[in-house]
Amino acid sequence: MEPLKVKNRRLVGRLALSAALMFGFGFALVPLYDVFCEITGLNGKVTRNGPVSEMAIDEARSVRVQMIAVNNESMPWAFRADSSELVVHPGQDQLTSYHAFNPTGRWMVAQAIPSVSPSEAAQYLHKVNCFCFEQQPLQAQEGREMPLLFVIDPALPAHIQTITLSYTLFDITPAQRTAMNLQQATRRTTL
């Protein structure tokens, strides 16, 4: 074997390996991005969830928290916040709820996606318990209170006086199309 060939082959191998690694890097950007979001609160993604340690309640300070409900397109549920606005003290546990109602004639599953604005505030809004942690199934014509327990970190920067918390409701009914078509087909024959 000629040395040039060996040299070429080695270099090709290295370059091909870097290409393969960069392909992997493309996928690695996904978790990296999540970390980045968590640090910066990009897009108001709230990743820090679950129970938090007891915090000192800052009585002197009040923060306005607005609740928004958004239905993604093709999501027919009635979905709204029970109170559109709350005033809370940082560190204080706050219980509130959203209400969802499935007006259709079929069983459906929804997933609520939270988002916080300003994005800087996202990391200071701890959701202790949230309906958005789980998928929410509702029978036809069924309605439900969906509780949300949150607490605002007293470390919230002073210039933030208003926090907006939005939930977007997505239809994630499994095997969506087939199930729905079946439902509709049966309804058509029975009616």
């Binding site: 290409a19 690694l21 960069m22 392909f23 890097f25 493309g26």
Partner: peptide, 9 residues
């Protein structure tokens, strides 16, 4: 070599 694989990804 660095970015075409990312596009593929």
């Amino acid at each position: 070599i660095a970015v075409m694989p990312v596009l593929a990804g």
